[in-house]
Design a binder for these strands. Structure first.
Length: 601
RNA sequence: GGUCCGGUGGUGUAGCCUGGUCUAACACGCCGCCCUGUCAAGGCGGAGAUCGCCGGUUCAAAUCCGGUCCGGACCGCCA
């Protein structure tokens, strides 16, 4: 959290409640103001800094609301002065004193409490602190594991405290929003059966049913559908979900989603509601008025123009398709790809024509590390075009490249030729990289986008079978159930290039569901074994229904202006699944294993 | 599972490519002394790392090589 790339100005949290403060405190440190001049105050907090002038000693006393300067003069307050000059940073002290305006010329306008100070009458050290392993202050540059091992110190830093409270307020705004609209918060089980999301499950062995396991929920998907069968009409929950997959900067295996489901909706009903929720959250947290409706992009269009199903539309550099221009090209590598059904695509990066060989090599490296066979670059300088493959390119091809990408003087064109999925992955990565390197990402812009008409199926390379793109209860958009072409009544919501959530209208007709299972290669017996309880429920009158699940961590991450999801989780794990603070996971005791009748291999 | 980057006093970095002058440098922090208005207080002095771990090459390794552990980003995976 050294910088806040996309951060808007956060609206500050409301004043604390009128509840009396615990422990006889009169004020929170950070909330002392000039209005309190002359008041006797009792404060308690952490010593964040000490300035000892030999005579007068200043302590900055910090609590979650901020810090305030405490002064102890040797003449006026010999007792407090003696304590203050000995106390170590991060010790917890209780201060009795009187608020006064600072003397002329010593006001610090940079601090909310900078007009005042507290003249100490008594200082008591409640607990002493050892020297902390890293400075407890904003803007620290410390190895992340160390921050996680001492997370309580890390969270003590004002910027982290602020993020956690931001998260609290986001969740609060969501709850109020859904509550006002008659949505009922229903809790669903944590120890349950495998859900149909397709990720690896976390399993919990059963003590009472030896040899059997519960799965931790990947989402409450089937339960919320059952609640629709139960007639709840509108359900929501802010719920922890778990998926045992490898981590990314924006992905954690223990995450929180805003889960909702409603009866009788159209896609539009769900989308309008979620848009209204985002409007509400952005208004409350940032005082930003989002424009609705959010733009829509079909999945196909998104992949074509951005190479991604979560496009960042805040900047241009859209992808151009040059496949036909390179059919039979003298650039054999490209021609070969085209002959074999691959694509040639690329885009123009404005003003990057002068990049050094080293920078260009780094781009090639970026492309190949994303699985592309290679990267061809063309630098447009004045009327000249430089490229390692320039001798293989015909004037027609050069013309096609320039017109399709819009490349002009000073631009750098990046071309990738490969199978469609690799072209997409490589160019998506390059586009994001170039946008960031060239400073093309506008700050303070919130580019929400719905991606619609998702495919109903994906080809599962590992299973050699069609797998649901969303999950097997997603309703098809039409009678077309051809796995190659079928579209789903599914939609994703994205923000600034991050996927925030995805949802769908569900199947409520038994024969459609049967066909779906059939296409997925599930025999009626297998379907019964996995989802029998849901199928049975649907025999007793199921309303048409649909919903969405939105990732709370990612929303908070974007609001907080960080690109690291761990920054918005109080106690996160590292990429190898270790929680540095507690040391989890740990080995079970023999007694625990015996009780579960388990043995480790 | 794969690719890439990193691991040097409490913290953050330099040094590593071009082995020896590194008995490892700098900043912050810490300790001591001085200092009565600062707010990254200031001044002076001091302690503190054998360079993630193991092994190898070499007369000599923080520096080269191999392995390994840990962390991070990305691909695969995952919505």
């Amino acid at each position: 959290m050294d910088h806040h790339p996309g951060r808007g100005r956060l609206v500050s949290a409301g004043a604390s409640s009128s509840e009396p403060l615990a422990g006889g405190r009169s004020h929170m440190c950070g909330s002392v103001r000039a209005d309190d001049e002359g008041s006797a105050v009792v404060l308690a907090g952490w010593v964040s800094r000490k300035r000892d002038h030999g005579g007068v000693v200043f302590l900055d006393l910090r609590d979650r609301e901020g810090s305030v300067q405490v002064v102890a003069h040797p003449e006026d307050a010999p007792g407090p002065h003696a304590v203050a000059s000995e106390v170590k940073p991060e010790s917890v002290v209780r201060v009795e004193g009187r608020v006064r305006r600072r003397p002329e010329g010593t006001v610090n306008p940079a601090l909310p409490t900078g007009e005042v100070e507290v003249a100490a009458i008594a200082i008591e050290v409640l607990t002493e602190s050892e020297t902390p392993p890293f400075p407890v202050e904003d803007g620290v540059d410390v190895e992340e594991v160390l921050r996680l091992r001492y997370r309580y110190l890390d969270l003590r830093r004002p910027e982290m405290t602020e993020v956690m409270r931001l998260r609290h307020r986001v969740v609060g705004a969501m709850r109020r929003f859904f509550d006002e609209r008659g949505f009922v918060d229903v809790e669903t089980p944590m120890l349950t059966k495998s859900t149909p999301e397709g990720a690896r499950d976390y399993l919990v062995p059963s003590r009472l049913q030896p040899g059997k396991v519960y799965a931790l929920p990947q989402s409450p998907q089937m339960f919320k559908q059952l609640l629709m069968v139960a007639g709840f009409d509108r359900y929501y929950q802010i719920v922890r979900c778990l998926r045992d997959e490898d981590l990314r900067a924006d992905r954690h295996w223990e995450f929180t989603q805003l889960d909702m489901e409603m009866s009788f909706p159209t896609e539009r009903d769900v989308q309008d509601l979620i848009e209204a929720m985002f409007v509400r959250v952005w208004r409350e947290l940032l005082e930003v008025e989002l424009t609705t409706p959010f733009p829509r992009l079909t999945y196909e269009e998104s992949m074509a123009r951005y190479g991604s199903d979560k496009p960042d539309a805040r900047y241009g550099m859209e992808l151009a398709d040059l496949t036909e221009a390179f059919r039979g090209s003298g650039l054999r590598a490209f021609a070969h790809v085209v002959e074999n059904g691959g694509l040639v695509k690329g885009f123009a990066a404005p003003g990057a024509a002068g990049w050094s060989r080293k920078d260009l090599d780094a781009l090639v490296q970026e492309a190949t590390s994303r699985g592309a066979a290679g990267l061809v670059w063309l630098a447009y300088q004045r009327s000249d075009v430089k490229s390692p493959v320039i001798s293989h390119l015909s004037p027609d091809e050069l013309g096609a490249v320039a017109s399709a990408t819009g490349a002009g003087d000073g631009d750098l064109v990046l071309l990738v030729a490969d199978q469609p999925s690799r072209v997409a992955v490589a160019l998506d990565g390059l586009r994001r990289l170039m946008a960031s390197r060239l400073g093309l990402i506008p700050q303070g812009q919130w580019s929400f986008l719905w991606v619609t008409d998702m495919p109903l199926f994906d080809w599962g390379e590992e299973d050699h079978a069609w797998v649901p793109n969303h999950h097997p209860f997603t309703a098809p958009a039409s009678d077309d159930l051809n796995p190659e072409t079928a579209k789903a009544r599914a939609y994703d919501i994205t923000l600034n290039g991050f996927e925030l959530g995805s949802g769908s209208i569900r199947i409520h007709r038994a024969e459609v569901q049967r066909k779906m299972f059939d296409l997925l290669g599930l025999t009626p017996e297998q379907a019964e074994e996995k989802f029998g309880f849901l199928i049975r429920a649907f025999r007793y009158g199921v309303p048409p229904h649909g919903g969405i699940a939105v990732g709370v961590d990612r929303i908070v991450m974007l609001l907080a202006g960080t690109d690291n999801i761990r920054d918005v989780i109080a106690f996160p794990k590292t990429a190898s699944g270790v929680e540095p603070l507690t040391g989890a996971p740990s080995e079970p005791s023999q007694e625990q294993l015996d009780m579960l009748r388990m043995r480790f291999r």
